[in-house]
C-alpha cells in the first residue's frame, strides 16, 4: 500500500505570546512542532503499513526549516519524505496550499491513500484535507476515528456531531484523522538512527510544474483585508480572602442571578 501523510509544521501553541503593546503575535523564536494530530495520521499510516505492507511517504509545504518536521517523521518510521518549498508558496490560503500539496503528492508517484490531520493547531480550518482530495479527484472522509483496509478499498468511521457514520470507498482515497484514532508512538532511537539515510526530496515551484498564479498569495481564493480589535473586557474585581469567604461571596453573586437549576449534566 502506498500511503502519503501530509504533515504541517506549526508553532508550539504553548510558546505563542502576544506583544503586550501591539497585541500582535510575536512570530520569532517560537519553537516549531509537528501539528499534533498529524502524528495520529502518521501512526495510522505506520499501522496500515505493518498489516498491509507498502511504503509511507510524508509530505509538507513550508519554509526550508520544515525539513525538521519531516526528519522527525522519518525518525518515527516513515520511509521517505518530500517538501515543497519556495518563496512563491508564501501567504497561501487553504486552496493554494491544497493545490501545492496535490502537485507534491502526484510528484511522489502513484498512491493508494492520503492521510491528513483533521485540522491544524494554527490555521485550524480543517479545509486542507478535503480540498486536496478535490484537486486530486479522489473520494474523501473527514474526522476519521477508525479505519481499515477492506476488500473494496478502505472502510472508515467518521465522527460527526450527532454520531458515527461508517462508510467505504475504493482506493485511491483521502482521509483526515482525529486524535481518537490512536496513540502516536514516540521516537524509537533505533528507527531514528536510520532516518538520516532515508530519501528527502525538495521541490520548488518549477519542480512541481506549477505557475506562480496557482500558489501562495497570488493563487489564494481569499485574502485578509483587515484586523478588527478584540472587544474590551469587563476588568474583573478580584475577590480575596480565605477560601470560605471567597466561596461565600461567589455563591452570593450567583444567587442574585436567580437562575433555575436544571438538575445537572448527568
Amino acid at each position: 500500500m502506498e500511503i502519503v501523510v501530509c504533515i504541517k509544521q506549526v508553532p508550539d501553541p504553548g510558546h505563542i505570546q502576544l506583544d503586550p503593546k501591539t497585541g500582535t503575535i510575536i512570530r520569532g523564536g517560537v519553537p516549531a512542532i509537528i501539528n499534533t494530530v498529524d502524528k495520529n495520521a502518521l501512526e495510522a499510516a505506520l499501522q496500515l503499513r505493518k498489516i498491509n505492507g507498502g511504503r509511507v511517504t510524508v509530505v509538507s509545504m513550508g519554509p526550508p526549516s520544515t525539513v525538521e518536521a519531516l526528519q522527525e517523521a522519518l525518525a518515527l518510521g516513515a520511509d521517505r519524505a518530500a517538501l515543497a518549498s519556495d518563496r512563491a508558496f508564501a501567504g497561501a490560503d487553504t486552496l493554494a496550499t491544497s493545490v501545492t500539496l496535490a502537485a507534491l503528492i502526484n510528484k511522489t508517484g502513484p498512491f493508494d491513500l492520503v492521510l491528513c490531520g483533521y485540522s491544524s493547531l494554527d490555521g485550524g480550518t480543517a479545509q486542507v484535507g478535503p480540498q486536496t482530495a478535490a484537486i486530486l479527484e479522489v473520494p474523501f472522509f473527514t474526522a476519521v476515528q477508525k479505519m481499515e483496509k477492506s476488500a473494496a478499498g478502505i472502510q472508515v468511521e467518521m465522527e460527526t456531531e450527532e454520531g458515527v457514520v461508517a462508510a467505504e470507498s475504493s482506493l485511491p482515497a483521502l482521509a483526515t484523522i482525529t486524535k481518537g484514532m490512536n496513540r502516536p508512538r514516540g521516537i524509537r532511537l533505533s528507527e531514528a538512527k536510520k532516518a538520516k539515510n532515508k530519501e528527502l526530496f525538495t521541490y520548488d515551484l518549477q519542480g512541481l510544474g506549477l505557475s506562480d498564479d496557482q500558489v501562495g498569495e497570488k493563487g489564494s481564493g481569499v485574502c485578509m483585508v483587515e484586523v478588527l480589535p478584540l472587544p474590551a473586557g469587563r476588568d474583573a474585581e478580584i475577590i480575596s480572602g480565605e477560601p470560605e469567604e471567597i466561596a461565600g461571596k461567589i455563591q452570593g453573586e450567583i444567587m442574585k442571578l436567580g437562575l433555575q437549576s436544571r438538575g445537572g449534566n448527568k
Binding site: A75, I187, A192
Partner: peptide
C-alpha cells in the same frame, strides 16, 4: 551532531509528552 540532535528531541518528547 545529527544523531545527538535527534536523540535530544526524542528524549524531550518522551519526557514532556509521556513521562
Amino acid at each position: 551532531n545529527e544523531d545527538q540532535e535527534m536523540l535530544s528531541k526524542a528524549a524531550r518528547s518522551f519526557a514532556d509528552e509521556f513521562l
